[in-house]
């Protein structure tokens, strides 16, 4: 049976959450709260790092020096986000090395969106606009979550995400003002990235196992479906503005709901990709494992050097 002390502490903890207080690393928290946060934050950090790969794929082929510089800066930001969120997770007693090991062994997940290939330059636009756009909606919500270090990390990161979103939209709107093949390239990218972006908000509320608890702890402030709807409502007018459409015949403004209605998401695809059966899962994991293995001698050298010269650091 539950220790009465723990029960008391848990009640007090929930009261604090309900009063809208922010939990800091040294505060008492239920083990399960700590675990769930470490899981979420490490998944988030892994996603930032894996996310470097699909866009890194186009830096060397960016079609102008300005675009190249912007894309480089963006991908560098994502690496920074990864680092920043790993540090935030470490405030909960997790160790980045262990988190990384869990990721490389395939036990920890990362956002399934990065398991899709970047086939044309327009994909850089679609990712910035849709993927970072979806990330902004998710992360703006997380910026109000109950765990202080995570919330603060999100506030800082969201500023950069807005720049990512803008540069993506700018890539697509430039393409849409271009030649026929350029416009086709833009539309094709949007066709491929639209549905996967909607899946970024996670399963429908009815099928989201962790949601209820996370909402109660205010780790999540809104449900997956709420955030998805917010993203769609915000994005559809932007598409219309530059002459892009989405591959969903059911997508339509609903005056009664004051929201856009949309078609059925292919959840089978979502769960397939989450569970390793997506177009680039193997490649992404292989690339990260190779980076880790190839980098081992470098890390060992740095350790050996530090041990030989203890006064230097």
């Amino acid at each position: 049976m539950k220790n009465t002390d723990t029960a008391g502490l848990e009640k007090e903890f929930q009261d604090r959450i309900d009063r809208g207080e922010i939990i800091e690393p040294k505060d008492w928290m239920p083990e399960r709260y700590r675990k769930q946060l470490i899981r979420m934050m490490s998944q988030h950090a892994h996603s930032e790092v894996v996310g470097m790969l699909p866009e890194g794929n186009w830096i060397t082929r960016a079609p102008s020096l300005r675009r190249k510089a912007v894309l480089l800066a963006k991908v560098q930001d994502e690496a920074g986000h990864g680092l920043y969120i790993y540090s935030a997770a470490e405030t909960l007693g997790a160790d980045r090395k262990d988190l990384l090991a869990e990721f490389l062994s395939g036990r920890a997940k990362y956002s399934s969106i990065f398991n899709y290939p970047t086939l044309t330059w327009a994909d850089m636009g679609a990712i910035g606009w849709l993927v970072d756009g979806a990330a902004i909606i998710n992360q703006t919500a997380l910026a109000k979550c109950s765990y202080g270090p995570y919330a603060r990390a999100m506030i800082r990161i969201c500023k950069e995400e807005n720049f990512h979103h803008k540069q993506g939209y700018e890539i697509l709107s430039t393409l849409m003002k271009g030649s026929l093949p350029q416009r086709a390239m833009a539309q094709d990218a949007v066709n491929r990235w639209w549905w996967p972006s909607l899946m970024m908000f996670g399963p429908q509320d009815a099928n989201s196992p962790n949601s209820e608890e996370l909402l109660r702890w205010k780790v999540k402030k809104y449900s997956n479906d709420e955030l998805r709807q917010r993203f769609i409502d915000r994005t559809v007018p932007q598409a219309e503005h530059i002459g892009l459409s989405f591959p969903d015949p059911l997508l339509k403004w609903n005056e009664k709901r004051r929201h856009y209605d949309f078609g059925k998401i292919n959840w089978e695809e979502f769960f397939n990709v989450i569970n390793g059966r997506g177009p680039c899962n193997r490649e992404r994991m292989k690339a990260r494992k190779k980076a880790d293995e190839d980098g081992l001698w470098v890390r060992l050298a740095a350790e050996a050097y530090a041990a030989k010269h203890p006064n230097l650091n």
Partner: peptide, 21 residues
Amino acid sequence: AEWCGHGPILEEDIAMTNISL
């Protein structure tokens, strides 16, 4: 830039993209 996402540690990914930039 070819190193991007393939560096030996995350800090080095940041450093190399920084220099590239």
